[in-house]
Every structure is written in C-alpha cells, then in structure tokens.
C-alpha cells in the first residue's frame, strides 16, 4: 500500500480531484454499460411476449 492513511489516499498528493473524477466517470460509463443492456433485455422480453400474444390471436 502506497498510502499511510485514508485521507492521504483520498488526497492523492494534491491531485485527488483529478484521479477520483477520472475513476468516477469510468464507473459511470461502466455502470451504464451494464445497466442499459439488462434493462433493455427485460423490456425487450416483455415486448416480444406481447408481440407473440398478439400474433397468436
């Protein structure tokens, strides 16, 4: 571990804002890439079911 304390870890030698915002944005992009396909999948499955029901009638 390169840091003695949590505050030093957050501070990053004065560049904390830059390092943490970069990782934060990366987290957002990754999170979106995980959540979007899963949500899309549930809505798509619902839609496919509806379409099949409609065509079955």
């Amino acid at each position: 571990m390169m840091f003695e304390s949590l505050s030093a870890f957050m501070h990053m030698g004065g560049h904390g804002a830059f390092v943490w915002s970069a990782y934060g944005i990366a987290l957002i992009v990754f999170g979106y890439n995980v959540v979007a396909p899963i949500r899309h999948r549930t809505s798509m499955l619902r839609e496919v079911r509806q379409r099949l029901d409609r065509e079955a009638q």
Binding site: M1, M2, F3, F9, M12, G13, G14, H15, G16, F18, V19, Y23
Partner: peptide, 13 residues
C-alpha cells in the same frame, strides 16, 4: 489506485 508507486514526474496523477 493503492499499490502503484507514484510517478517521479507526475505523482499520483
């Protein structure tokens, strides 16, 4: 984030 040594020029960035 935790274990890479800081760069001699750029520090933690």
């Amino acid at each position: 984030l935790g274990f890479v040594p800081p760069d001699y020029q750029q520090g933690h960035t």
